[in-house]
Simulated assay, not measured.
Amino acid sequence: MSDSSRPRLIPMTPLQQLRAPRTARRLLHLVGGIALLGSGVGLFVQAGLGVSPWDVLHQGLSNRLGLSFGTVIVLVGLVILLLWIPMKQWPGLGTVVNTFAVGPVADLVIRWLPTPDPLAVKIALMAVATVLMALGTALYIGAQYGGGPRDGLMTGLHFKTGLSVRLIRTLMELSALGVGWLLGGVVGVGTAVFALSIGPLTQFFFRWCVVDISRGRR
């Protein structure tokens, strides 16, 4: 299948998202994607080689506030959703599920999976985690129920300021990384691996994960 004939993401209001066809498959993508994304976040933390820029922030806040890593993910997501209000961004079902589910799933993985000692196992765990996060992201966004808090903030700032999505995303990631590092979050080789690989991997999985809602099939 050529890129031009593949299913594409369609801009929709939250109500249009709920009314769109293929509900069962879209919900399966949403739930499965969030489960994989949260699991990947937890695995990446337990690999012990550094975390993604946003998770550096989550980790730093977790250390300072004495809250679990997953709880901080939820709280930061809620704060970011407040920033949607002046930009007139509306959360969809995917936004809500992402906000409240990724953190608890990550906490479960962190709680039950010990950090491995051999470096080779850490590297393998980091690689698996990166793939799971990319696949999970492609699945839940491909369900066409809306993106997570950080994605919505990025697009909202893009429309408000006219700056490129690439520039805004870069500034957001660097800001989260810098603040998180100052708060004691762990920056390591895993941070660089995530930054360089998550975009291409997510784009790779998108070709199979976007649900086609243009033909009205359920």
Rank of each mutant, 00 (worst) to 15 (best):
L65F: 13
T155C: 01
S197W: 01
G136K: 04
S52M: 05
L135D: 03
P104Q: 02
G32W: 01
L82K: 02
V51S: 02
W181E: 03
W54D: 10
P86G: 06
A24Y: 10
T95I: 10
W90P: 00
G190A: 09
G142D: 04
L49C: 08
L201C: 06
Q46E: 14
L174V: 14
L18Y: 09
G33W: 00
T161C: 04
L57M: 14
G147I: 00
D151Q: 06
W112R: 10
T95A: 14
L18H: 08
M1H: 14
E173K: 03
L177N: 06
A101V: 12
G50T: 03
L135C: 09
V97C: 11
W84D: 09
V96H: 02
H58K: 09
Q17R: 15
T13R: 12
N63K: 15
M133D: 03
V165S: 01
I198F: 02
D55I: 06
V186H: 12
R166G: 09
F100N: 02
G60A: 07
G136W: 00
S52D: 14
V31A: 15
M133N: 08
G48S: 08
V187Y: 01
L82S: 12
V121F: 08
R22Q: 14
P200E: 07
H58R: 08
L78G: 07
A143R: 06
W90R: 15
L163K: 12
T155M: 15
T170L: 14
L36K: 09
P7D: 02
G178I: 08
L183V: 03
W208N: 08
L108D: 04
C209M: 15
L61A: 09
G184M: 11
L36V: 07
G103L: 13
R217W: 10
T155S: 14
M12E: 12
S214A: 15
L78E: 09
R207N: 05
A24T: 13
G33R: 03
V76F: 04
I123E: 00
L108C: 05
V193T: 08
A195M: 14
G32K: 06
W90C: 11
G162C: 06
V109T: 04
V51T: 12
V121W: 11
D212R: 03
P21M: 10
S164G: 13
P118H: 03
L27D: 01
G147N: 06
G40F: 09
F69C: 04
L139M: 15
L75D: 00
A124T: 13
A143F: 07
R166K: 14
W208A: 12
G190P: 02
W90D: 11
L65H: 01
S2F: 10
E173V: 05
L43R: 03
W90F: 15
V109G: 06
V41P: 00
Y140F: 14
P114A: 11
T170F: 12
L167M: 13
G148L: 10
A24C: 02
V179C: 01
